[in-house]
Design a protein around this nucleic acid. Structure first.
Lengths: 358, 358
DNA sequence: GCTCAGCCTGGGATCGATCCCACACCCGGG
DNA sequence: CCCGGGTGTGGGATCGATCCCAGGCTGAGC
């Protein structure tokens, strides 16, 4: 068997070599087969500049016959403009990020852009690495759920348009698409307070990024609104993955004075609390009320369903990409933050606290 | 404000222009700033060929100072070898595909490859489009969950290594990583038969691809093994998304002679059946037993948990990528199909049929 | 002193597509 | 008859990085 690509045809040689050429077809082969110059072939295929209709059709026919696919690499190098965008999320296995990526992917395709996707697993080092790869590839723009403040700045220094989604680090310097975390958190906390709960725990991952900070602020604000004192020991940092969070939640729920309600700051934490409650045989909502930020499909599968703040991940992704394209169009417009609305989905996981818990 | 990139520096001019250059730094600027030729700078940065240690360090220092990031586009064009792989899945919002992508992404990063991801939504046209984009980008290889037989052939014709995952269309001509669908399906069906079920429905999406065909075959084989006659009307094509499948499942479960057990051929269908059973107030497992192919997280959150065939999507992705790299290394080795094992996870969703249902 | 090998550097071609520019041709109007 | 505008084509430079090759230099061996 001949090793593929071993023997490259001499340039200038006739290009007719059977139905399946030994080597990748370039515009040169197309031009030769059609009996025109590379320039003419290029014009015929791209549609830029004058070409006789007859010639254009012939060239296109020949190109199709040879299975010619223009080399995007070469085109981008010459045009100095790439047709791909970079997308950087924290965890593809999390349905929220997966939905985000799905939305972006769909819209990118509609605009004839390809998507480079990286998953940083929440690590700033990996994030930086991925950003460098995007710079190296000269992507047209990047959509990122940032885990460090440096990333947007780094990309901006390299003149790559950036849109931050979900979280926002470079407010004012960089476009962003986020939801009103504070407002939504305030509303669900108020809901629990209105039901009569006083010992409401907040299970959260971090409290410095916009998501964590604002959800915490909303939770606090709801207490202030209701004139209820807040027990700071009920704000629990529970880590990033289900397993560690489950252990933390377990501890929280087995305290001498356990909370009567839990507000989980995202879907992973909600899953952890759900599992912990199950381990401890704490009936929801009779013994424990639960609300979640981020509505994912399992929350409507379990009984009772989990009351949650729904943010449409797909819509978030779509908004991010349209923001990105606007930015690409007008690089010097002032930075803009788009605020998407959330919806509170009432299900069965909340009820007044048990008498003993008051 | 000056429009970015408007005024390009004359080549040959001194490169020292403040901390943040107006334009993207190329190897030419680095070379000039370090007082060497482009060739030497290239050798210094890549480490190929002779460079004096002193010079090398100086060039690297300068490059770092200028924030030089080599243009991957140009490098690939010259080297005729790309550092990205293409990944094409059917639906990123489905946790199975998301997990697959996550596994691939992680391993790709370890090998310093970037990942182009496309989501074809199950459409052969979109799949073909994406494949063409991958060819245009001259990716080093492609991992695909195929929806048509043409795709692998098309990519192969363009000399791009391909690995089919989950489903397999081009058996023998193309590497693949799959699970033993028939065996697993046979086992879970046998489990239901052993419990005493006779009216066991198979809710499935399609029956021509390897996944559908083999799961169906396994289901059939289990009946044959048990010497039980199979009611063909219990094999139901329920479509691709939760909503249409839920409607089909609803119809199935409200038949005059409903099944006492359902084998759902994937996680989407299992969700649909679960929801339909809930709508009809059919207690699981008392009135209806349920098993699923594909174990996703909600199946251990609901009560009772869903008995399922677990296939590790992340591991599948990792196997696919290592297979792909072997293929890139030795393009002419014979095609290989890797069979990953599955695990049957017993939970509470199966029980003997109700007396009336026998 | 000369040669030769090994070290080190720079010039220029190259990858594939694009695009500017020069030029050729045709036709109508002055 | 000549000129100019519109149409159509090809040559060659270009994008940025790489890499082959020629050639300069040094030092050791004869």
């Amino acid at each position: 068997m001949t090793r593929a690509g071993q023997s490259r045809r001499k340039t200038g040689q006739a290009a007719a070599e059977g139905p399946h050429p030994t080597w990748r077809v370039t515009i040169r082969e197309v031009a030769e087969a059609a009996g025109v110059s590379r320039s003419t072939a290029s014009r015929a295929l791209t549609g830029n500049g004058y070409v006789a209709t007859l010639v254009r059709d012939r060239v296109r026919e020949v190109a199709r016959g040879l299975g010619y696919v223009p080399d995007a690499t070469a085109r981008h190098l010459r045009r100095q403009a790439s047709q791909s965008i970079g997308v950087l999320v924290s965890d593809l296995s999390n349905p929220f990020y997966a939905g985000l990526a799905a939305g972006i992917s769909q819209q990118a395709r509609r605009r004839k852009y390809t998507m480079m996707l990286a998953d940083d697993g929440g690590s700033p080092e990996v994030e930086a690495e991925a950003a460098e790869a995007f710079v190296a590839l000269r992507v047209a723009g990047v959509i990122v759920t940032p885990v460090s403040a440096q990333i947007s700045d780094y990309l901006a220094r390299h003149r790559i348009p950036v849109v931050e989604v979900d979280r926002q680090f470079a407010a004012g310097d960089c476009d962003a698409v986020v939801v009103d975390n504070e407002r939504a958190a305030r509303k669900v906390t108020a809901h629990l307070l209105a039901l009569g709960h006083r010992r409401i725990a907040l299970v959260i991952d971090e409290m410095h990024w916009t998501t964590g900070r604002d959800r915490l602020a909303g939770y606090r604000a709801a207490f202030a609104d209701a004139g209820v004192a807040l027990d700071e020991s009920l704000v629990v940092s529970a880590g990033w993955d289900v397993d560690t969070a489950r252990i933390e939640a377990h501890k929280l729920l087995s305290r001498p004075q356990p909370p009567t309600a839990v507000f989980a700051a995202n879907n992973v934490l909600a899953e952890a609390v759900w599992r912990a409650a199950d381990e401890l045989d704490l009936a929801i909502p009779e013994r424990l009320s639960l609300v979640s930020f981020d509505d994912v499909s399992w929350m409507s599968l379990v009984r009772p369903g989990v009351t949650a703040v729904a943010q449409d991940a797909v819509a978030l992704g779509e908004a991010a990409i349209s923001q990105l394209f606007e930015r690409i169009q007008s690089p010097n417009a002032p930075a803009r933050t788009v605020l998407l609305s959330t919806r509170m989905v009432m299900r069965g996981s909340t009820a007044p606290p048990p008498p003993a818990g008051r």
